[in-house]
């Protein structure tokens, strides 16, 4: 029993991290129909900012997460301004190639500054609670709580605030939005800031749970979170969360039941099968034709 709950907790922790990264993909895709392939690397930058803030500047937890989120949000805005905006009207394939290029650039820039793996010190003291065999660590609780909190906040921003409304309007018709007096570039920048900031938050959480970081850490996790977003229905915020938790669960179950080399193989096969039956993802709807 303790064993099963322990594995469920592992599932929840991994799923939370995937979900928060997946939200960054889904935000940008939902609003601009652009797959921001640099997002995994923005996540990595978030982890490195956490390392700098906590390891070099010895900041406490709250400033660390603020530095990581603000830094990646700025990076996201910069990437949009200098890499994606000039291509906004270009063919989609150019934008995708640019996104991949930006990712490689960020990786190698970080690699040039710090080629070695780095250790992120303990930002918060780790406390373990024991419930008849089930060990719950304060880090796990923090990660799950922080992820759920972030998701609720994002859902609120997008559904209830005027900026969220403008984002949704932008996703429907980018050409008409300026006629409402809405500055499109500001809304796009805000979308990138939020998306990238989520990447930064995920990077910090990741660095707290898995405190050895390196410049390539974002690649595989980025791909997985992207797939989580697609499985949930890309562009759909609740879908991204669902996709993240599903991927976390599938990976955990595969590792429990099968040799480790099968994990990604099984996880991705299942996801592919799922997409065959639900091509728009679980919560995605086919793109409606605009009237």
């Amino acid at each position: 029993m303790a064993y099963i709950s322990q594995q469920l907790l592992n599932m929840l922790q991994l799923g939370s991290i995937y979900a928060v990264i997946a939200l960054g993909y889904t935000m940008v895709y939902g609003v601009l129909s652009l797959i921001n392939f640099a997002h995994g690397d923005i996540f990595m930058v978030g982890a490195f900012l956490c390392f700098i803030a906590a390891g070099k500047l010895h900041m406490p937890f709250v400033p660390v997460i603020l530095v990581a989120v603000a830094g990646t949000a700025l990076l996201g805005v910069g990437v949009e301004r200098f890499a994606y905006r000039p291509l906004r009207d270009a063919p989609k394939v150019s934008a995708i190639i640019t996104a991949l290029g930006v990712g490689v650039f960020i990786e190698n820039f970080t690699l040039a500054l710090s080629p070695y793996p780095r250790h992120v010190p303990e930002i918060l003291p780790v406390v373990n609670w024991n419930f008849s065999g089930l060990t719950v660590s304060s880090i796990q609780v923090l990660i799950v709580a922080l992820s759920i909190g972030l998701m609720v906040v994002l859902d609120f921003i997008v559904r209830k605030t005027s900026y969220g409304m403008a984002m949704r309007a932008l996703s429907w018709d980018i050409k008409t939005l300026p006629l409402m007096g809405v500055p499109v570039n500001t809304i796009v920048a805000l979308t990138f800031a939020i998306g990238a900031g989520f990447g930064g938050a995920a990077g910090t959480m990741y660095a707290m749970a898995f405190p050895v970081i390196d410049p390539y850490m974002g690649i595989m996790i980025g791909w997985k979170a992207f797939i989580a977003a697609v499985v949930g229905g890309i562009g759909n915020i609740r879908g991204a969360m669902l996709g993240g938790y599903i991927l976390g669960a599938v990976e955990t179950l595969a590792t429990v039941a099968l040799p480790s080399t099968y994990r990604d193989f099984v996880a991705f096969t299942l996801l592919l099968i799922l997409l065959v039956f639900r091509p728009n993802g679980i919560l995605g709807v086919p793109k409606t034709i605009k009237v």
Partner: peptide, 20 residues
């Protein structure tokens, strides 16, 4: 005997099995 593949950073599942 638990295994993983290079690049993996989450070993909680394997460690949970070991602990069990």
């Amino acid at each position: 005997v638990e295994t993983y593949t290079a690049g993996n950073k989450d070993f909680t599942v394997q460690m949970t099995k070991i602990k069990n």
